[in-house]
Simulated assay, not measured.
Amino acid sequence: MNPSVHKVLIIGGGFSGMTAAIEFRKRNIDVHLVEIDPNWRTDGAGISIGGATLRAFKTIGILDEFLKVGHAHSGLDLFAPHGIHIAKLPTPLIGDKDIPASGAIMRPALAKILAEKTRASGTKVKLGCTYTQMINSATGVEVTFTDGTTDTYDLVVAADGVFSSVRKSHFPEAGEPRYVGQGVWRAVLPRLPNVENTMMWVGPHLKVGVNPMSKDQMYLFLTEDKKERQQVDPADYVEKLRALMLTFPAPMIQELAGMLNEDSMIDFRSLGNLLVPAPWYKNRIVMIGDTVAATTPHLASGACIGIESAIVLAEELCKDVSVEEGLAAFQQRRWDRCRMVVENSGRLAQIEIEGGDKAEHTAIMRESMMALAQPI
Rank of each mutant, 00 (worst) to 15 (best):
L63N: 00
I47C: 01
R333P: 14
Q350F: 09
P375Q: 02
I266D: 00
Y131M: 12
R347A: 08
I10T: 06
I22H: 08
I99A: 04
H170R: 14
A159Y: 07
G122A: 05
D96Q: 00
A109F: 10
S48G: 15
M18T: 06
H205T: 13
Q332H: 09
D336E: 10
S4H: 12
I105L: 02
F163Y: 12
K215W: 12
P108D: 03
G128C: 10
A45D: 09
I84P: 10
G161H: 04
D290H: 07
R366L: 12
A310E: 07
K215N: 15
I266K: 06
F79K: 02
L348V: 09
D151H: 05
S322T: 04
M106Y: 11
T295A: 15
E239T: 11
G326W: 01
T118N: 02
N261F: 08
L222K: 05
G12P: 07
I285S: 02
N136I: 08
L93G: 12
E228L: 14
P81S: 00
T247N: 10
V184A: 11
F66W: 09
L260V: 01
T19Q: 11
K126V: 10
P81Y: 01
G302K: 07
L93E: 08
M252K: 15
I10L: 06
P279R: 11
S16M: 04
A138K: 14
R347S: 07
L271C: 04
P212W: 03
K168S: 13
E196G: 13
L317R: 01
I113T: 05
R339S: 15
Q217W: 14
A174Y: 03
C304D: 13
F171H: 04
E367Y: 12
D43P: 07
S164Q: 00
A235R: 15
N194M: 14
I10Q: 02
K7A: 05
D37Q: 02
V323R: 01
S169T: 14
P277W: 09
R333T: 05
L76N: 15
T91P: 02
I60C: 04
M199E: 07
L127D: 06
C129L: 15
F248H: 03
Q350Y: 10
R186I: 08
S309C: 07
P277D: 12
M199Q: 13
A101S: 01
F66G: 05
T42F: 14
Q331T: 00
Q217R: 15
T130G: 12
Q254M: 13
A363F: 11
F24L: 01
L299G: 08
K168Y: 11
E262K: 06
T123C: 15
V34H: 08
G181A: 03
G183R: 08
M1K: 15
G356P: 06
W185V: 01
G14M: 04
V34L: 11
R55Y: 01
I266G: 04
